[in-house]
Amino acid sequence: MERSLHCLQNQRLQNQQCQSAEKQPSITWRERIYRWYQLRRERDSLRHLSDDMLKDIGISRDDVQRESRRPFWDDHGWRR
């Protein structure tokens, strides 16, 4: 009896995991391209900020240069 209860609990856990995986929406190419375009605009805007503005938000000019050199598809925020 104990073994069958354990198997039943495992089966319920697997079903819950499958259901949660199904709820995650898939990302369309249109959304991905829009995100890349948005990222390029953000990095370009950041590059044009003055040194005083960068100081206000706590970012150095070196950080901005490093960020603006990254390719548009390099997006760590997308895979949340």
Rank of each mutant, 00 (worst) to 15 (best):
D51R: 09
R70H: 14
R12A: 05
R61L: 08
I59C: 14
L13M: 06
R41H: 14
Q24H: 00
G77E: 11
S26F: 00
H76L: 04
R40K: 15
K55Y: 02
S45F: 09
S60W: 09
S45D: 10
M53Y: 05
R79S: 04
Y37F: 12
L49N: 03
H48P: 06
K55H: 09
R80C: 01
Q24T: 02
R70S: 10
Y37P: 02
R35Q: 12
K23S: 02
R41W: 07
T28S: 06
D52W: 02
T28A: 00
P25V: 00
R43D: 02
E67A: 15
S20P: 03
M1D: 07
D75S: 12
R12I: 03
N15T: 07
Q9I: 11
R40A: 11
E31Q: 10
D44H: 15
S45V: 04
C7K: 13
G77Y: 10
S60K: 04
R79A: 01
W29R: 02
E22Y: 01
Q38H: 15
S26C: 00
Q9N: 11
R32N: 03
Q16V: 04
D44Y: 14
R70D: 07
N15I: 03
A21F: 03
E42C: 15
D52F: 02
L49A: 09
R47G: 01
N10Q: 12
Q65C: 13
L46R: 09
P71C: 02
R79H: 08
N15R: 06
R32P: 01
D74R: 13
Q19N: 06
R32S: 00
E2N: 13
Y37N: 15
R80V: 01
R30T: 08
N15S: 05
R3D: 08
N15V: 04
K55S: 11
R47N: 08
R61K: 13
R40S: 13
Q19F: 03
E2V: 13
Q65K: 15
M53C: 11
Y34D: 11
L8T: 12
R41K: 15
K55Q: 12
K23Y: 00
R30P: 03
I59N: 03
R43M: 11
E31P: 02
Q11T: 11
D44P: 01
S26N: 01
S50Q: 04
R61A: 09
S60T: 15
D56F: 02
C18H: 11
W29D: 06
Q14L: 05
